[in-house]
Amino acid sequence: MTTIDEKLIEWQKENFNDVYHTMKEALKDVKEERDVVKQKYCANYFGVSVNTLKSWVHMGCPEIRLESGMVLYSKQGVRKWLLQYQK
């Protein structure tokens, strides 16, 4: 026979798991909504390797290079550049 305390603990665990998964999905959505991202995330977004992304830059793909040396990409800018090659 389960006690009220056991039921309460079970209910709290279920609630925590629900909230945890909701927050995890919300954070994932926020990350995907950002336009300016680091190299690795941009490559992942377009389903290519970092080397392919670097190759695109040599072909004219826009990149943002900060004074610190950090390289960023606008997903919208890359998408616009890619669409130039659409036939």
Rank of each mutant, 00 (worst) to 15 (best):
M1K: 08
T2N: 06
T2W: 04
T3P: 00
I4R: 11
D5M: 09
E6W: 06
E6C: 03
K7R: 13
I9L: 12
W11F: 14
K13I: 12
N15D: 13
N15R: 13
F16V: 02
D18S: 15
Y20E: 07
Y20R: 11
T22Q: 12
T22N: 11
M23L: 14
L27Q: 10
L27F: 08
D29I: 03
D29R: 11
D29F: 06
D29L: 13
V30K: 08
V30C: 04
R34D: 09
R34T: 02
R34V: 05
D35L: 00
D35G: 03
V37K: 05
K38I: 15
K38F: 11
Q39W: 00
Q39A: 14
K40Q: 11
K40A: 08
K40R: 11
K40L: 09
K40M: 12
K40C: 03
K40T: 07
Y41V: 15
C42L: 04
A43S: 10
Y45F: 07
F46L: 07
V48F: 00
V48L: 05
S49D: 05
N51R: 12
N51W: 05
L53F: 05
S55E: 09
W56A: 03
W56R: 04
W56S: 02
V57F: 07
H58Y: 11
P62A: 02
E63T: 09
R65W: 05
L66H: 07
L66R: 06
E67W: 04
G69Q: 03
G69C: 10
M70D: 15
M70G: 07
S74N: 01
K75D: 00
Q76D: 05
G77W: 00
R79D: 09
R79K: 11
R79E: 09
R79A: 07
W81C: 02
L82R: 09
L82I: 13
Q84A: 03
Y85K: 13
Q86V: 15
K87L: 14
